[in-house]
């Protein structure tokens, strides 16, 4: 099939180059054709690529593409081609990060199990504070706007390093707790939660000497542990809650260890955290035997860290 699409593109190149009404008409026909192909097979790499190739010529409406891909994602909300296409069009349009974030919120609230939407949030959140709170001012020079857009595109694309703001993380912890209290055995929210914990840890890692950051992290971990314990009271059999608890205890062990004497915590506290983390991982070996190898590894990491 890919060769047939190649032949079409060869024929279209001169038409698109010519421009004008004929080019716009030809582009519209290609979009109709790829839509028919995608309706038959939403996972066709070559049909999606052909559509991107046509759209890249900027002969047709981009807003219409967003509407179309929303309809496709309503029908198949985990289709990664559809999500990739949305990001492609959003980048071409210079779509505000806030609007994309709102879209993922809608998809998540419709279905907490939409891992694709949680994934996209992880790409968008680090961009939130790099975007102006108000629409670009009229005197914003084109080059400055282009530069900002390039930065947003590259970050949306996966550049790492930007810290997610504390207040943003608080909102995210709240959203994801709704997900795991609603569906405790769905992986999607829990994997996202683990990433959020990593984001919280990153603030401390960025300022390892800061007692304020360390205390703030200890507070976040304590709150999350209390939340997971509440869930375990309601759902004692939740393996995912137990995994998260074990992971949290491991993190607390690290943070507690770093406090040393200065925070007034004796070595007894650290040792207790270490024992608790190791015991939590050991429990999981029995509860979730498929992953026993991983739990043994995590347990040995906890044990080594305590030495």
């Amino acid at each position: 099939m890919y060769t047939a699409w190649n032949h079409r593109r060869e024929a279209l190149v001169p038409v698109f180059k010519e421009g004008g009404q004929q080019a716009m008409q030809a582009a519209a026909e290609e979009l109709a054709l790829t839509l028919r192909a995608l309706t038959r097979n939403l996972k066709s790499y070559s049909a999606w690529h052909h559509r991107k190739w046509v759209i890249g010529h900027r002969l047709t409406s981009l807003e219409a593409e967003i509407t179309l891909v929303e309809t496709l994602l309503d029908a198949d909300d985990r289709n990664f081609h559809g999500w990739a296409y949305r990001r492609f069009v959003a980048d071409l349009m210079g779509m505000p990060v806030q609007r994309e974030l709102e879209y993922t919120t809608r998809k998540i609230q419709h279905n907490f199990s939409n891992y694709s939407a949680w994934h996209y949030r992880s790409k968008l959140l680090p961009l939130l504070h790099s975007e102006p709170g108000v629409p670009a001012a009229a005197d914003d020079s084109p080059s400055a706007a282009a530069e900002r857009q390039a930065m947003i595109s590259s970050s949306r694309a996966g550049a790492t390093g930007a810290l997610v703001l504390h207040q943003t993380l608080e909102i995210e912890y709240e959203l994801v707790s709704q997900a795991f209290f609603t569906e405790p055995e769905d992986q999607s929210g829990w994997i996202y939660h683990r990433w959020l914990l990593g984001c919280s840890v990153a603030h401390w890692q960025a300022a390892p000497e800061s007692e304020a950051e360390r205390a703030r992290l200890a507070d976040v971990l304590g709150c999350q542990l209390a939340l997971v314990s509440d869930l375990l009271d309601l759902e004692p059999g939740s393996v995912w809650a137990r995994k998260t608890r074990a992971h949290l205890l491991g993190l607390m062990q690290r943070v507690g260890g770093a406090a040393g004497g200065s925070a007034g915590r004796g070595s007894g506290g650290e040792a207790a955290d270490c024992v608790a983390a190791a015991a939590a991982w050991e429990d999981l070996e029995g509860l979730d035997p498929y992953r026993a190898g991983y739990y043994r590894h995590a347990c040995s990491v906890s044990a080594r860290a305590s030495v």
Binding site: F80, W83, A84, R87, Y115, S116, H119, Y120, S122, K123, S154, R156, A157, G158, A159, T160, I191, Y192, W195
Partner: peptide, 19 residues
């Protein structure tokens, strides 16, 4: 490296979900 994600996995392009 640009294709690496929050879960440690990789996607088809930068921004793409892990698969």
């Amino acid at each position: 490296r640009q294709c690496r994600n929050f879960d440690g996995g990789f996607g088809a392009q930068p921004g793409g979900e892990s698969h």
